[in-house]
Computed example of a mutant assay.
Amino acid sequence: MLAGEGPKAITVMWVMTGLSFILVPLRLYTRIFILQALGLDDHVFTLGWIFLLLYTTFCTVAGTHGFGQPISALTIDEAVQAIYTEMIGQTFAVLGMAIAKLSLGIFLLRIVVKPWHRISIWISMTSLSVVSVMTAIIFWIQRLPSESIYDPRVPGRTVVTVTPFSVLLGSWCAVVDFYFAILPWIFIWELNMRFKEKMTIAISLSLGFIAGICGIVRTIELGGLSSSNYTEDTVPLIIWSAVELAVTLICVGIPTVRPLYRRIVHGSTAKESHEGYKKQSGSDPARAQFEFPMRNFGRFARKDDLFTTNASVAETGPVQSFTEGQGDEDLLVAGLRDDGICVRQEIRVERV
């Protein structure tokens, strides 16, 4: 029977699990039917949500045994079952947080444009995975035999203290969240998208700042792991772990469902809104785009936008030359003369 702080904790966990689940089918639908580009990051994202579901489920079971209540109010068998199932749930949380951030990292790898971007992302993902797995293992071998961790009736000896590793994991999760939130502002300007699209995507990817803040709060609450009143003092840690994992999934999922939003609200396709997140080094000839080097923010426009621009400029004076070359490095040059003033505009053809 749920009692004490248990109902509050379980309610928050299921609410966060439900909110993050909304993005699972939306993301899969967007990737499969709109972009037709289902990737590894989508499977990792779904796996991260499954780990959140398992975390919430095991903590719910722990609540029926006394999680959220003072350990002194429980029988020894109830306390053992509550701590044991809670520990299983925490293991899924530790691994799930790394998996969710891996999903974002893999997504970023699909759109970054420079080698050092890829290297830094791989370093972040690899190091976080190592720390997460290491913490999960130490969590279960901090005392030997492992039964002595949650059952005081079993004699055992302490092998290693898990709290420092938990602090390291929480801190590193926050660092990776902040880095992944900052990185888009560095490379997004080199993608073949409109300026408005770049700003929107950069802001949506920066929602990871929220997950980083949740990670800091969760790290502060790690003191409950070493408390003798484990079933009650770990409630804040359990809640904030669920919030961080769910917020991470939500922040990762929002940018990937934007093509679906554009399709519903504006009726546009992925190609029209450049939602395919293609790099400049792409080679699809069907998606020629035109760069205006004179713009300091590197705006890219579609072919129909180009002719609209030329038509409006032509009203101010006769177009003396307009030629289109072949290949990625060729230029379109329009020279305009009006009262002795020469206006030169260069337009670079990009194959993306």
Rank of each mutant, 00 (worst) to 15 (best):
V154G: 12
P285R: 11
A62C: 11
T158M: 10
V176W: 04
F67A: 09
T17R: 13
Q81R: 10
W172P: 01
V265T: 08
I239K: 00
E244N: 08
S321I: 01
H274M: 13
L38P: 00
L306D: 07
R263T: 01
L191P: 00
P7Y: 04
S241K: 03
S226K: 05
G208W: 00
F292E: 05
S146R: 07
P155N: 11
A93Y: 01
D305W: 01
W240M: 02
A334Y: 02
I99T: 14
E315W: 01
G4L: 11
I347M: 09
D177V: 01
L249I: 04
I76D: 11
G6W: 03
G298K: 14
L207D: 04
E5C: 11
I254L: 14
I186T: 05
L54S: 10
T75P: 00
D330M: 06
W49Q: 05
E324H: 12
A37N: 14
I71G: 12
M87E: 14
S226L: 04
A202C: 06
A211T: 03
F290A: 10
F322R: 13
L102D: 03
R194I: 00
T30D: 08
P184S: 10
T91D: 09
V15G: 12
P7T: 06
T269P: 00
F290R: 07
A301V: 06
G325N: 08
Y230R: 06
G68F: 01
I186N: 06
Y84P: 00
V352I: 15
V113H: 12
R287P: 00
V167A: 15
Q142A: 08
S129H: 05
L2F: 06
G66H: 05
V343D: 12
G89Q: 07
V44D: 07
L38S: 09
C342A: 15
G105E: 05
V130M: 14
G282P: 00
F187G: 01
F139Q: 14
G267N: 13
G215F: 00
P152A: 14
R344G: 04
P236Y: 05
C214I: 01
Q81D: 07
G4C: 13
V257H: 06
V217R: 04
V24W: 02
L237C: 07
I238P: 01
T231C: 03
F300E: 08
V131P: 00
T75W: 02
V131T: 09
I119V: 13
G4A: 14
N192Q: 07
Y29L: 15
Y150A: 15
S127C: 14
Q81L: 07
S103D: 07
I149L: 09
N296Y: 06
F187T: 01
V319R: 03
K196S: 10
L306Y: 05
I138E: 11
T11Y: 02
W116H: 12
E78L: 02
K198D: 11
T158C: 08
Q326S: 13
T256S: 15
I186L: 09
S273G: 11
M134K: 05
F33S: 12
S129Q: 08
I220K: 04
E329Q: 15
M193W: 00
Q142M: 06
S228V: 09
E291S: 12
I186W: 02
A62W: 02
S166C: 11
F187L: 03
V265G: 09
S227H: 03
A311D: 15
G335F: 04
L128Q: 07
I111V: 11
A37S: 14
V257A: 10
M294C: 12
T269M: 10
S72N: 10
C59N: 13
